[in-house]
């Protein structure tokens, strides 16, 4: 079976600066893969390349064995890849329910329909309710997303990402800025909603990473310097110097 995601010599420059410098990475189906690295290493940029937000400078990206480089974000999403954002990116003026329902419409085949009544779409409404239930926002169903608390907005961010049932999920720092208990809840949530899916997650919290990840890749200055199971990453000298070392004391 082909890898869920495969990056081949992926390179990205902004102007003259090369931010991603020849990344090769293959993530098999169903793996939970964490990407770590210091600030500015290019982790979010890598997500932006995979999800089609930015075009590649060089290289190729394959989703389930098929090249997706050059495709628009919505085309990649329709092929079963969905992402969340480091900076919360939701429909602020819409209710929680509407946010989630917007995220399920395409995958259920309603597309640009103006001949279906939203209220009558049983499948879409049930799926949206189920997603709200799983992200713990059922009680906030009719609250405008813009007035939710920070942790609630982060949960909604994940909810929108997983609502459409994508098989490859990219989460960019899902627990950043959360308290200890909120983080624990978020870890539970992530584990639950990505059951049986391929997960790629950028994270700074080592506890979360060692808790969730099957495998870890370390990105430093746009290059993957190590990609291994958590136990080996912990003992990797280069990684400790480049990244973990700064946090261990």
């Amino acid at each position: 079976m082909s890898a869920a995601i495969e990056l081949r010599a992926v390179t990205k420059s902004f102007g003259n600066t090369e931010i991603i410098r020849g990344v090769d990475l293959a993530i098999p189906q169903g793996e939970r893969h964490a990407i770590i690295g210091p600030n500015g290493a290019g982790k979010s940029t890598l997500f932006n390349l995979i999800s089609g937000r930015y075009p590649l400078s060089r290289g190729d990206i394959l989703l389930n064995g098929v090249s997706v480089s050059g495709l628009k974000p919505f085309e990649i999403n329709r092929k079963g890849l969905s992402r969340s954002f480091q900076i919360t990116n939701i429909f602020q003026r819409m209710s929680v329910f509407e946010n989630v329902r917007c995220a399920v419409l395409w995958s259920l085949g309603y597309k640009y329909s103006f001949w279906h009544r939203l209220g009558g779409l049983k499948d879409a409404n049930l799926q949206a309710e189920a997603v709200m239930e799983s992200i713990g926002l059922k009680a906030r169903r009719d609250t405008p997303a813009g007035v939710l608390s920070y942790a609630e907005q982060r949960a909604l961010e994940i909810g929108i990402t997983i609502a459409g049932g994508a098989n490859v999920i990219l989460l960019d720092e899902p627990t950043a800025g959360m308290s200890r208990t909120e983080t624990a809840d978020a870890v539970e949530l992530i584990r639950k909603v990505t059951q049986g899916k391929t997960l790629i997650m950028v994270e700074h919290d080592m506890g979360v990473i060692f808790d969730i990840a099957d495998k870890i890749s370390v990105l430093v200055y746009g290059e993957v310097i190590a990609s291994d199971i958590p136990a080996n990453i912990r003992g990797n000298k280069a990684v400790q110097e480049a990244y973990l070392g700064t946090e261990s004391h």
């Binding site: 917007c102 309603y110 009544r117 939203l118 459409g164």
Partner: peptide
């Protein structure tokens, strides 16, 4: 009635946050 259809709702979504709309599958 149009405001209560998938297209009508996605028009609101595109109005509020076109970027996110693209990442939930909408052109």
């Amino acid at each position: 009635a149009w405001t209560q259809t998938p297209l009508g709702r996605m028009a609101n979504a595109v109005r509020d946050n076109p970027e996110r709309a693209e990442f939930v599958g909408y052109d």
